[in-house]
Amino acid sequence: MSATVQSSAAIAPSRRFGGMFAGNARAVIERGLRATMSSNYLVVLSGFFEPVFYLLSMGVGLGGIIGSIEVDGTSIAYGAYIAPALLAVSAMNGAIYDSTWNVFFKLNFGKLYQTMLLTSLGPLDVAIGEITLALLRGGVYAIGFLIVMNIMGLVLSPLAILAIPAVILIAAGFASIGMAFTSYMKTFQQMDWLPMVMLPMFLFSATFFPITIYPPAIQIMVECFPLWHGVEIVRMLTTGAITPMIWVHLGYYAVMLSVGVVVVARRLRALFLD
C-alpha cells in the first residue's frame, strides 16, 4: 500500500461551511443508537412511565371526582383533558433526559465530542446528530403514550394522528434547548437547576387545569413556557378543537429548535475547537 499521494479513505467534506459542517450527522445518530442498544433498557424506559402513571392516577382517580371540564365552551372528560398535556410532557421528558444528563456525561466525562471532532465531523454535525437522538427518544415515549391514550379511549379526534409529527417537533425543541443549556453546565450542582425549572413548568402549563384560573400576570408567564405551547398544540389535535393559534405555537417550537441548534454548534466549537 503506497500512502504517499493517495488521499485517505474518508470522503472529503465540502469546504463551504467554514469548518462547521460535514453533512454527516447520520454517523453521530448511528453511534448513539449503537450505544443505546447496549445500555440498560430499564433506565431508557423509566422516563416513559412517569406521565403514564400521572394519567392513570390523576385521569382515573381525580377524573372520577371532577368528571368533566369546560374548555372554550365545550365540555370534555377530565382524563381526555389532561391526556394530551401528558403526551406533550412525555415528549419533553424523553428529549430532556437525553439532551441534559446524557449529554452532560458525554461532555464532561466521556470525551465523546472531542473524539468526534477529531474526525471530519464538524460541530454542526454533532449538534444535529445528538439533538436528533434526544428527540427520537422523546418521539418513542410520545408514540407509546399515544397508544396508551387510545386504549383508554382518551383520543377524541382522528386528527390525533397529527399529534405524532407534533410531538416530534416538541421533542426536537426541548432536545435542542436542553442540550444548549447543558453545554454551559460544568458541575452537578448546576445541573440541579434543571428540576427547578422543569417541575413548575410541568405543574403550571395548563397540564392539569386551564390557565384561566390564574391571575393575568401569571397567565402571561405560563404562556412564555415552552411546555404550555406544546400542550396547546397536542390538545388541539387530540380533541379536534383547532384554532389558528396553533401556528403561533408551532412557530414557537421552530424558533426554539433553530436557536438551540445554533447555540449548541457554537458552544461545541468554543469548547472543543478553540
Binding site: 488521499s7 485517505s8 474518508a10 470522503i11 472529503a12 467534506p13 465540502s14 469546504r15 461551511f17 469548518g19 459542517f21 460535514a22 453511534r31 449503537r34 450505544a35 447496549s38 445500555s39 466521556g110 470525551k111 465523546l112 472531542q114 473524539t115 471532532l117 477529531l118 474526525t119 471530519s120 465531523l121 464538524g122 475547537l273
Partner: peptide
C-alpha cells in the same frame, strides 16, 4: 478547513478517549 484537513489525518491524542459505551 477543519473537517477537510481532519478527513486526511489520523490523530492519537495524549489521553485515551475511546468510546466506553461501545
Amino acid at each position: 478547513d477543519g473537517p477537510a484537513i481532519r478527513s486526511q489525518l489520523g490523530v492519537v491524542p495524549q489521553e485515551d478517549n475511546l468510546d466506553q459505551e461501545l
